[in-house]
């Protein structure tokens, strides 16, 4: 298995994906705790939930993109 410093960087970019997982879990967990306190208001906030999930997830996808760029474009 060979590799250079770019491969190492690609591996380090994987940390970003894990951190995005924390963010996504935070959004979903807070939604759930809010929804269990007031279930009648939960249905109206699912759109907001998905917007929040999407924004949190996008940054993790960015680090995946950086990993791909380091592996194939450099």
């Amino acid at each position: 298995m060979e590799g250079d410093i770019a491969t190492l960087g690609a591996g380090l970019a994987g940390i970003g994906t894990g951190l995005a997982a924390l963010g996504v879990g935070n959004v979903a967990g807070n939604y759930l705790s809010g929804a269990l306190r007031n279930p009648s208001a939960a249905a109206s906030q699912t759109a907001t939930l998905f917007i929040g999930l999407a924004f949190a997830e996008a940054l993790g996808i960015f680090s995946f993109l950086i990993a791909l760029l380091l592996m194939f474009a450099i």
Binding site: A58, I61, F62, F64, L65, L68
Partner: peptide, 13 residues
């Protein structure tokens, strides 16, 4: 950028 990369990245990954 984030709008398009989010979709492509999710599916690729």
């Amino acid at each position: 950028v984030s709008h398009s990369v989010r979709l492509a990245g999710n599916i690729t990954a």
